[in-house]
């Protein structure tokens, strides 16, 4: 499936689901006791209603646009190009997914391991995820390791000593 082609439809469905969920959740809010007040429901209900309507408009307009595109005869070469595009998309998004996973681990380790150690490890691994394939040799690894350690220590010293920020020290405490 070409995700890009169905992008607006997907966005519309996600927002519609979110709007319904938000509307249902708003009923957990306690009522306002202040006389003359419209209450705590009003704005959430209005937001849910408007975003629900906008989602339906987006779904309808993207559905109509899709029908118009499908009505036109498709060139066979186009589908090959689409497959090639999707393959390159997979290689493009892999570093993003890797970065999010790495960030998850970094934040999780921040307090128990400490800022300096967690940041230096994160930086070293992130450099390896983000760097182009031809820049991951032994010489580059040494440079990444050095940069990671120096950057983590420098940022820690700068914020702790100059801005009095209390960063977690973890294992180095």
């Amino acid at each position: 499936m070409n995700v890009h082609r169905y992008r607006d439809l997907i966005v519309g469905v996600i927002f519609l689901t979110g709007s319904i969920g938000y509307y249902l959740l708003s009923f957990q809010t306690p009522k306002s006791e202040i006389p003359g007040d419209i209450g705590n429901y009003f704005i959430p209900h209005l937001i849910a209603l408007v975003s629900g309507l906008l989602s339906l408009m987006l779904i309808a307009s993207s559905y109509l646009a899709l029908r118009q595109t499908e009505a036109k005869p498709q060139k066979p070469a186009e589908s090959d190009a689409d497959t090639a595009k999707e393959l390159s998309a997979k290689t493009r998004y892999l570093p993003v997914v890797g970065t999010v996973a790495l960030l998850f681990a970094y934040i999780y380790a921040l307090e128990p391991v400490g800022f300096i150690l967690a940041s230096a490890t994160y930086l070293f691994l992130q450099f390896n995820i983000s760097a182009p394939a031809d820049r991951r040799d032994a010489k580059a690894q040494f440079r990444y390791a050095l940069t990671s350690i120096v950057a983590a220590i420098a940022i820690n010293s700068f914020f702790v000593n100059i801005f009095d920020v209390m960063l977690p020290q973890g294992l180095l405490d």
């Binding site: 934040i107 800022f115 940041s119 994160y122 450099f127 983000s130 182009p132 940069t147």
Partner: peptide
Amino acid sequence: KYLLMPVIIVLCTV
């Protein structure tokens, strides 16, 4: 940029 962006993430964390 692949060296700059991760350092910015650490600064965001701080």
